[in-house]
């Protein structure tokens, strides 16, 4: 006997309207109901960061928010990070070049977290990057290539800003 609510939100620029059980967290809603399985669920108690998505531009844990709380909000998942024509986000491009991923489990959370972080901190130090991803666990890379990729993407994004 689940309490159900009708919600309307925007996911990766597309309007979405549907019913959701109120107990469903946003991560399960994105994966299970919308089929957007790019958002990964690791710990489901806020420790691992794999499920991070952007809610109205803020990086948040999708496992620590109910789907009903996303009513009226703008959600960006990893599926919405690249341009519609398939051009990778500078972070995605840098991760590919610098080997910022191996198994790929933490990657969606790393990318969404770093996208929000670089928007607020366009010229970060290495220490700031490390602090920013301290809430995202990676068990493959040892973090070094992730930090390098983030710094490379930041540099490229600053250049693009300068050209505009």
């Amino acid at each position: 006997m689940d309490d159900i609510r009708h919600i309307a939100l925007t996911v990766n620029g597309q309007p979405v309207e549907c019913d959701t059980p109120v107990r469903l967290h946003l991560g399960d809603f994105l994966r299970g109901i919308l089929g957007l399985t790019g958002t990964h669920l690791g710990c489901e108690h806020g420790a691992c960061g794999a499920c991070t998505v952007l809610v109205d531009g803020e990086a948040v844990r999708s496992c620590l928010m109910l789907a009903v709380q996303a009513n009226g909000r703008q959600i960006t998942t990893i599926e919405g990070l690249a341009d519609p024509d398939g051009t990778l986000h500078p972070l995605q491009q840098a991760f590919a070049e610098k080997h910022g991923l191996q198994c790929g489990y933490c990657t969606p959370g790393m990318l969404t977290s770093l996208a929000a972080f670089l928007r607020d901190t366009p010229d970060p130090t290495e220490t700031q990057v490390r602090d920013a991803i301290s809430g995202n666990l990676c068990r493959c890379t040892g973090y070094q290539p992730i930090v390098e990729a983030a710094l490379l993407a930041a540099a490229r994004m600053r250049q693009t800003e300068g050209v505009r």
């Binding site: 991070t52 803020e58 844990r61 977290s113 920013a132 301290s134 809430g135």
Partner: peptide, 9 residues
């Protein structure tokens, strides 16, 4: 307190 993602909430 936590991380920047949890402090946003």
């Amino acid at each position: 307190v936590g991380h920047f993602q949890t402090r946003a909430r």
